[in-house]
């Protein structure tokens, strides 16, 4: 079971390497793809990428942990990222955040039991004129209120 999963991962990475190349500058696109497809970059995937690009696994690990959008631990299918920077904050982010937490029954930084939603804060995402704003995976939602945010989450449930 684990083996077939790993083989599939190796194949996927081989394909990505075929597309982006074997030089170090292919590292980011490759792990970004893995992240999107699997919600994380597993330690196995990191080592396979390292092997194919001829870098040290720990360097891949260093990169994965540097960027907020990459993660070595599992995330939910939908990552809800609520902007916490000042403009959104002043526009009412706090009320929205509490509403989301109550709705999903988890706190920010956590993932729901069914692995559907992960809640995260994010720094300014460039929607300051329409705050509070959030991303669900790569979809943007703006001018949130406690009510609209709940409606939006329900669409993903």
């Amino acid at each position: 079971m684990i083996d077939t999963k790993q083989n599939a991962m190796t194949e996927e990475i081989e394909m990505l390497v075929g597309k982006y190349g074997r030089t170090r500058d292919a590292l980011m696109p490759i792990i970004q793809n893995i992240q999107v497809n699997h919600g994380m970059v597993t330690d196995f995937a990191q080592q396979e990428v390292a092997r194919m690009l001829d870098v040290h696994p720990v360097e891949v690990y260093g990169v994965v942990t540097f960027y907020s959008f990459l993660s070595e631990t599992p995330k939910g299918r939908y990552i809800v990222r609520l902007c916490k920077t000042i403009s959104c904050d002043m526009a009412g982010k706090e009320a929205v955040a509490r509403a989301v937490e109550r709705e999903l029954g988890v706190k920010f930084g956590e993932t729901t039991r069914d692995n559907k939603f992960s809640l995260e804060y994010i720094n300014c995402m460039g929607m300051c004129d329409q705050g509070p704003s959030m991303l669900v995976n790569d979809l943007v939602f703006t001018k949130l209120t406690p009510h609209t945010v709940v409606d939006i989450l329900n669409r993903f449930k």
């Binding site: 330690d43 990191q46 080592q47 870098v55 040290h56 696994p57 720990v58 360097e59 690990y61 260093g62 942990t65 540097f66 070595e72």
Partner: peptide, 25 residues
């Protein structure tokens, strides 16, 4: 570890005030 010896065990992870030097995973 990475450049002089090319063994590649130690590297900085995370960023900001959470930065630390550690091993793979």
């Amino acid at each position: 570890c990475i450049d002089l010896q090319e063994v590649g065990v130690l590297e900085a992870i995370n960023r900001g005030d959470k930065t630390k030097i550690t091993t793979f995973m």
